[in-house]
Design a protein around this nucleic acid. Structure first.
Lengths: 152, 152
DNA sequence: GCGAATTGGTTGCAACAGGAACCAACTCGC
DNA sequence: GCGAGTTGGTTCCTGTTGCAACCAATTCGC
């Protein structure tokens, strides 16, 4: 571990800069190709992968704010990529699911997303990729544990 | 590498979620303890580590937007943590450097920052920490290379 | 050296995110 | 089943961010 009196070696800073670069790259690609923003794409990814969800469930699955989820759903609904149907169990919420055109778009987006991911990870070999994902998971858990500890 | 038809295993998503958790943690700490936002803290870190810089140089060192740098400097100046002095070589810009009280604060902040970093990285052994930083650097380079490639 | 192009810094503006307040529907205790 | 408290969803408002236009000082071509 280098001595991070220099900002450049401070891990949270490095994470922030790197993640920003990656996010910008992907956001550009999605916007120019599909007209989707990242929150909207995340919602589509979840619905396409595992079917109908309520907004509540989407908040959990995407780790986004409930306001962000709500806005993304509204946009997707206006574009007829997603449909709402009543929730028999709870009159306050709806089930959201992809429409036919939503599924078509999902079918194009996911391979595209995986391809971008592969391009990004090109410099890493298979073992390093697994390692990287694992390290991220562990740091994530650590950050959440620390956050919890703050009496909140 | 797990099959990321599930959002949770998509690397850019995982990076975003993890980095957000880390940033929130740190932002809370700095704001409640020193009343500093992250951009302000970054500027102080650079000035404290390697002395006077112009805004132009700070933009490069912190990787932030020049507007963000300008605003951070203005705030720090108002709080008398940073001082501007004329630049003999270029009348448009100034040299920015920490005042005495800025240096005092820097002396407290940096150990604190390193301590947070250590806490965050607790679950990783020394080898894993080095590995993580190295992987981040390589992915960062990869993202920048891809960004460059986009005709921009 | 004089005008054109460039660069450092600043201001204004528009998009975005997140929190707090709010409404409607549900659950629980009694 | 009635009232208190909770939860899903929505709206509103605030603060932050980043881009684009801009001004002033500098550099370059000639």
């Amino acid at each position: 571990m280098p001595d991070p009196t220099r900002l450049a070696d401070f891990v949270p800073y490095l994470m922030s800069v790197t993640t920003n670069a990656v996010s910008d790259l992907i956001a550009d690609e999605y916007r120019s190709t599909y007209g989707l923003k990242i929150p909207e794409w995340r919602v589509m990814a979840v619905l396409g992968d595992s079917g109908a969800h309520t907004q509540r469930e989407l908040v959990h699955a995407t780790r986004m704010d409930k306001v962000a989820v709500n806005r993304a759903c509204k946009v997707l609904e206006e574009r007829s990529l997603v449909r709402r149907s009543p929730n028999a169990q709870d009159g306050r919420s709806h089930h959201l699911e992809l429409t036919a055109s939503g599924k078509t778009m999902h079918g194009k987006i996911m391979p595209h997303a995986l391809e971008i991911e592969q391009r990004l990870l090109t410099p890493l070999n298979a073992e390093e990729r697994v390692q990287f994902v694992s390290l991220l998971h562990r740091i994530n858990a650590s950050a959440e544990a620390l956050e919890e500890g703050k009496t909140k």
